[in-house]
């Protein structure tokens, strides 16, 4: 299953990243060799194995639903690269 420039085009669109022609060429070759390498997992029969998401025996972790002030919202909001009157400015989304 060879990985081609078409695949790079498709996933870079999903990931919202523009690539230069040089990047596209490099990533195609590099990802192709990485994917060829990870194919070695198919040597293993895992049909009866349960997947592990993380190693802790945790289910739902609950806490009391109480209001707490954990940080300064002003400081969080002020981080935006472009804002006016405490609102983020972006290009028009709905025509």
């Amino acid at each position: 299953m060879a990985f081609t420039e078409k695949d790079v085009d498709y996933i870079s669109k999903l990931a919202r990243i523009y690539l230069s022609d040089e990047e596209k060429r490099n990533f195609t070759t590099q990802l192709d060799s990485i994917l060829e390498y990870v194919d070695k997992l198919n040597e293993l029969d895992t049909s009866d194995i349960e997947p592990t998401a993380h190693i802790l025996p945790l289910n739902n972790v609950m806490r009391d639903d109480t209001v707490k002030k954990i940080w300064d919202t002003e400081l969080a909001i002020r981080q935006s690269p472009l804002m006016k009157d405490r609102l983020y400015i972006v290009a028009k989304v709905i025509e």
Binding site: A15, E23, L31
Partner: peptide, 18 residues
């Protein structure tokens, strides 16, 4: 994203997306 991320990060985002 294109200007903000470096090559290794882009590579891993692309691989992960794939």
């Amino acid at each position: 994203k294109s200007a903000g991320f470096g090559a290794e990060v882009k590579r891993r985002i692309l691989l992960g997306t794939y």
